[in-house]
C-alpha cells in the first residue's frame, strides 16, 4: 500500500501536517498531525510498504514490544484510511 497522489505532508509551525489537495481535498478537508513515528511510517508509505515492513521500521528505531507496535501501526493506518489517503 502507499500514499495516494494529492496527499502532502509539510512542516508547519514545528508540526508535521498532512492535508489533501486537488480532487482529494473534496473528499478530505481536515488536517492530520503526525508525530515522530508517524513521520517514519509516512515516509515508508510514500514509496509503498506493507504492514509488516512498517512494523519492522518502527521496531528498528524504538525498543518496544512487537504487539504494541502492531497496534500503533493499525491505529495509524486506520486514521489514514479514514481520510482516504491510502491506496491498497
Amino acid at each position: 500500500m502507499k500514499i495516494k497522489n494529492g496527499f502532502i505532508c509539510r512542516q508547519v509551525g514545528g508540526n508535521n501536517v498532512v492535508v489533501a489537495t486537488g480532487a482529494q481535498s473534496k473528499i478530505f478537508n481536515g488536517v492530520i498531525k503526525l508525530n515522530e513515528s508517524g513521520l517514519v511510517l509516512w515516509n515508508k508509505l510514500l514509496v509503498g510498504a506493507e504492514k509488516n515492513e512498517l512494523v519492522d521500521a518502527l521496531l528498528s528505531e524504538y525498543d518496544v514490544d512487537r504487539t504494541v507496535v502492531e497496534a500503533d501501526v493499525d491505529k495509524f493506518l486506520k486514521e489514514l484510511r479514514d481520510a482516504g489517503a491510502i491506496e491498497e
Partner: peptide, 24 residues
C-alpha cells in the same frame, strides 16, 4: 506550534496541489 494547528480552520487552502503546498 499550537497556533499553526489552530490556523488551519481559518485559512483557505487552495485545491491546486502546488498552491496548497506553497500556502503551507
Amino acid at each position: 506550534e499550537t497556533a499553526a494547528m489552530m490556523l488551519f480552520s481559518q485559512i483557505y487552502l487552495p485545491s491546486i496541489g502546488e498552491n496548497a503546498a506553497k500556502t503551507l
